[in-house]
Design a protein around this nucleic acid. Structure first.
Lengths: 214, 214
DNA sequence: CGTGCCGTTGACAGGCGTCAAGTACAGTGG
DNA sequence: CCACTGTACTTGACGCCTGTCAACGGCACG
């Protein structure tokens, strides 16, 4: 199970951010392991911890009352998540594939907050970037931006595997799975990308993909 | 000029956040005044300052190469903005109506960063909230959410004035001005709101508006 | 080989963008 | 005082993009 996920996530372990190692507070904690789809925290639960992805991937999302879901962010190795100001989580975080996560209690060690400012700013920046994508870009443009984002997380590789199913891509980009599929097909037919199986992506024309995101 | 703006923004001066007064660093700075549409900082400029709205309002936006604009956030009295991790601004901030802004240099006083974590978390939270709106809601639902947001900034008043023109609302919600106008008309025809002139909003059925944002 | 999940493709309808015309209003100048 | 002008907003007609519904194909697993 999850063979198609564990291979790329294994490669990603080496990408764990060294600049955050300085925080001995974090390194002293054990890594918790989660299986695919397992909840790391849920909306409504009491907050008070900071989380960092060690390996694998995490989706953070919120669900509207009518069932519509919006994935706010994907997090990969080294990325912090779950940082917020309220007492209770307003979003849910789930593992994508087998995923390792380190937790720090902010109640026991409130001073850790000080070191997390760069991480919060990073999250904030990503959220703003994503606002542009879902606010002002067409379906194909969103897919292009998404593929470039995933490529960047894979070390700007031209060939990589998507960690998540289509429904996650759709809920991240504010689209439906059908539109995601159709947009990928369009990019394929324009010889901008090649598809290798359901999750494999090969970027043939990197520049064309970038031009779509203008 | 701007009479329709200065009245509500004047009321808002009292709403300046007291919990931030502790930072004498901020209070020691003079307030710079900006006229309607004046740039506070621009995309590409060197960053290194934190900004706080004293009175009036501010829009922060980015523009894609093809001219499409996305307003990332509106900021009102007491709100911090311009906080980011890079060396250079990736967005532009402009005054809406006559606006007062206090600046703090983060290069001269880097320790100020520590006190700004709550403000960054607040900005981050707002961005996430907005992701849901523009990612998963219809035009009418976005307008409903927007009106409730503006109402909240006016002390949850049922009657308030919009500070900004339709084009700002549209670029904030990822819509066109025509769709904004039509959606407002729909809400008006359903007797959920009343329109008083171009900018005046009266919420007749608060509950109905909330139900639209589910 | 059947079953179930995931992804793709097609037909169709509806929502929103685009283009265009019309209205309201403030400011200006005669 | 009133016509003129420019800006902001509204309304209408129309077309496209994307959502919806449905059928189909591929692959893993039992």
């Amino acid at each position: 199970m999850h063979t198609s996920m564990s291979a790329p996530s294994g490669a990603r372990i080496n990408a764990i951010p060294l600049q955050l190692r300085e925080q001995g507070e974090v390194e002293s904690r054990p890594t918790s392991s989660f299986v695919d789809g397992q909840s790391i925290y849920s909306s409504g639960e009491r907050a008070g911890q900071a989380y960092r992805v060690e390996f694998g991937a995490v989706r953070v999302y919120r669900v509207l009352a009518n069932g519509r879901r919006q994935i706010l962010a994907f997090h990969f190795g080294g990325s912090w998540f779950g940082l917020q100001n309220g007492d209770h989580h307003r979003s849910t975080a789930e593992a994508i594939g087998v995923t390792g996560v380190k937790c720090v209690s902010l109640r026991e060690s409130p001073h850790v907050w000080n070191g997390l400012l760069p991480a919060v700013l990073e999250n904030f920046s990503s959220a703003q970037e994503h606002q542009l994508v879902i606010g002002r870009q067409s379906a194909v443009e969103r897919i292009a931006a998404f593929l470039l984002e995933m490529s960047a997380h894979a070390g700007h590789s031209r060939r990589f595997e998507l960690f998540m199913p289509r429904v996650d891509v759709a809920d991240y980009l504010g689209l439906t799975i059908e539109t995601v599929s159709r947009s990928l097909t369009k990019l394929k037919n324009k010889d901008i990308i090649k598809l290798h199986g359901a999750r494999g992506i090969e970027i043939v024309d990197y520049r064309a993909l970038q031009n779509l995101c203008l």
